[in-house]
Computed example of a mutant assay.
Amino acid sequence: MPIRIVSYNLLAPIFGDRPEMYRKCQPQFLKTDHRWNLIQSQLKQEINHHDNTIICLQEICLEFLPKLDLFFHELNYSFFQNLYGPPCTDYLGVGIAIPISMQLQSISYIRIGDYMRSMSKPRETKNGLFAWGQQWWQFLMNKFAEPAKDTWDLAMSQTNTLICLQVVIDHKIVYVANYHMPSLYLIPDLMQMHASVVKDCMFELAAGQNFILSGDFNLKPYDVTYRILTEKGYDQNLPESYMYEISYRPNSERALKSAYLEKNGAEPVYTNFRDVAKSPNFCETLDYIFFQGNLIVEKVLELPDQPLSESYPDETHPSDHLLIAASFRLL
Rank of each mutant, 00 (worst) to 15 (best):
E240M: 10
F64K: 08
N37H: 13
D216M: 03
G128H: 06
Q166M: 03
L162Y: 02
H321I: 05
T32I: 05
P280N: 07
S279L: 06
V297F: 04
Q81A: 03
L83Y: 11
Q81F: 10
L30G: 09
A255G: 08
N178I: 03
S311M: 06
P19K: 02
I5P: 02
L154Q: 05
Y109I: 00
K31T: 00
F64D: 04
S311E: 01
I324F: 07
C56Y: 06
L331V: 14
F72K: 04
Y179P: 04
P2T: 15
G208L: 02
S309T: 15
H171N: 15
Y175K: 13
E146K: 07
S157I: 07
C88H: 12
P304L: 06
P182M: 03
D235N: 13
F29L: 12
F328Q: 01
V297L: 11
L295C: 10
A325V: 07
P99E: 02
P318H: 00
D189T: 00
P13L: 02
F15A: 09
V269I: 08
M191I: 14
G85A: 13
L213T: 09
Q135P: 01
A325E: 06
R274Q: 15
M193N: 08
R35Y: 12
W152P: 07
R23W: 09
M21A: 14
I107G: 08
S214A: 15
F282E: 14
Y84Q: 03
Y185L: 14
I163R: 04
Y179Q: 01
E267D: 11
R123M: 14
G93F: 01
S120H: 00
L83S: 11
D305Y: 12
M181A: 13
C201N: 03
V6D: 05
Y312M: 06
A177V: 07
M191S: 07
C164F: 09
K24M: 04
Q209Y: 12
Y248R: 00
Y91M: 05
Q138W: 12
M141P: 12
T285H: 08
E20C: 02
P147G: 04
I96K: 01
A155T: 12
R274W: 11
P239H: 12
D69F: 02
M116Y: 05
Q81S: 14
V167C: 14
N237D: 10
D69E: 15
H317L: 12
E124R: 13
D153C: 06
E146N: 07
N127W: 01
H50G: 09
P313Y: 08
Q158M: 11
A255C: 13
L219R: 00
C25H: 03
A145D: 06
H171S: 15
M1A: 14
E298C: 02
L154D: 10
T32W: 01
I47K: 01
G93E: 06
L11T: 00
I14S: 11
P239K: 09
P307A: 03
N237G: 02
Q158G: 10
V276P: 09
Y260D: 04
I212T: 10
A145I: 10
Y226R: 02
K121A: 13
F139E: 01
V6Q: 04
K44W: 05
A277F: 00
F203A: 08
I169A: 06
